[in-house]
Amino acid sequence: MSNYNFAYLDEQTKRMIRRAILKGLAIPGYQVPFASREMPMPYGWGTGGVQVTAATLTPEDTLKVIDQGADDTTNAVSIRKFFEKTAGVATSEETAQASVIQTRHRIPEEDLREDQILVYQVPIPEPLRFLEPSEVETRKMHSLEEYGLMHVKLYEDIAKHGAIATSYAYPVKVEGRYVMDPSPIPKFDNPKMEMAGIQLFGAGREQRIYAVPPYCKVVSLDFDDYPFEASKADHACDMCGATDSYLDEVIMDDAGGRLFVCSDTDYCAGRRRAGHVGAQGVALAEDAA
C-alpha cells in the first residue's frame, strides 16, 4: 500500500471532504453534499465514515473502530486494518485511549472527552427518506423547516401501537433547526449525542457529510403526552453486571436460553477487569489484554 497517499485519499479529495466537514460543523445537522469517491470497500460498508476519518486523521492519532459496539466484528477489523496500512496510525480498543473513533450503530458507553472525535458510518442520511423518496422534495422540506410529515408518522405509530414504533435511527432535531438522522444507533444512545466530543457523519453512497459540534442541542422528537424514552433490554449484563449499558441478546442453547451482554465490548471488559461480575461471568485479571 506504500504507493498510496497518507490515509489513502489524494490531497485534493481530502480538501473537498474537509471543506464539507467545516460547513457541516457551521450548520449543525444539515447534510452537506460532497463528491464521495469510490473506495476499495463496498458502498454501504462504511465508505462515508472511512472518507471522513481519512480526512480527519493525523499521524499522531490513535484510532478505534467499532461495529455494533464491538472492536472485533469483522467489518470493524477490516476498516481498522485499512487505516493501519494506509495511515500507519496507532489503534486501540480502549475508548479512553482513542482520539478518533469510527463507529457503526453505537455510541460508546463511556462519556467522550473534548479531545475525542466520533465518526459515524451512515447508510441513509436523510431522516425524511422513508416518508418521501424524492431528494428534490426532502431538500425542499428541510429548506422550509417543514417537518410535519415526520410528526404525522410518529403520531400514526402511537395511534396504531400505542407507542412510537421507531427503536433505532430515531430522528433528532439539532440546535432547534434541522431534523437529522443519527444513523442507525439504538434510541438508547440518542441522549449521549449532547457530548463534549466532535461528532462527524459520513454517508458515502448518498454523498452527504454532516456534523454535530460539542455541547450542541440534540433533541429526540416526541410529544408531550408520549415523551421520548431511551430504552434498553430490562436486564443487567450477565458478564459484568452493568445495568446502565446497552445489551446484546445471545441465544445460548437449543432450548432458546438467553444471555444478555454489553454491546460495548471495551466497556464490559473494563468493568470485569475492575472486578465487576455479572450473573454468568467471571472476573477478568487486572492485566488481561
Binding site: N5, F6, A7, E11, K14, R15, R18, I21, L22, L25, A55, T56, L57, T58, P59, I198
Partner: peptide, 13 residues
C-alpha cells in the same frame, strides 16, 4: 503536504 495539511485541518476543524 499530506501531514502538514492533516495537522492544519485538525486545528482549523
Amino acid at each position: 503536504a499530506p501531514v502538514d495539511a492533516a495537522h492544519a485541518f485538525r486545528a482549523a476543524m
